[in-house]
């Protein structure tokens, strides 16, 4: 069975790019494009990996992560934050919330793929 990833991102072009990269490598990619019901989507799909944007309509990526970690069954779910806001304080905030990996946009395709495979071996 292939590994599943849930991509939470609102820029259609970036969704397209990441989906392409990961599915070519054998991942099953599901996408979700707003913030407010993102946690429900994770609960429903139970993915192996979550890739999360920060600036989302309705609810920020940080809030989604905070809520996710409250739930016992998602304590260890790998979460990769992929954001266009790459300042130090953003990175620190993400780490304090229990992110698995923090990457800034723009990214190289290979790095994303490597990170994903690294998080879900």
């Amino acid at each position: 069975m292939s590994k599943t990833v849930l991509l939470i991102e609102d820029e259609p072009n970036i969704i397209e790019a990441i989906s392409f990269i990961l599915s070519r490598d054998g991942w099953t990619v599901a996408t979700h494009s707003n913030g407010h019901d993102a946690n429900d989507a994770i609960l429903r799909r139970k993915p192996d990996l979550v890739i999360l944007d920060v600036m989302l309509p309705g609810k920020s990526g940080f809030d989604i992560l905070r809520d996710l970690r409250q739930d016992a069954q998602f304590q260890d779910l790998p979460v990769l934050i992929l954001t266009a806001r790459g300042q130090t304080k953003d990175r620190e905030l993400a780490q304090s919330l229990g992110v698995s990996r923090f990457m800034t946009k723009p990214f190289s395709n290979a790095d994303v793929l490597a990170a994903a495979n690294d998080l879900v071996p």
Binding site: E11, N13, I14, E16, A17, I18, I21, M55, A84, R85, G86, Q87, T104, K105, P106, F107, S108, N109
Partner: peptide, 14 residues
């Protein structure tokens, strides 16, 4: 930075 990086991301990726 956000406004510049977002389109840049798509451009680079594709």
């Amino acid at each position: 930075s956000h406004e510049l990086r977002t389109p840049m991301t798509s451009i680079l990726a594709f």
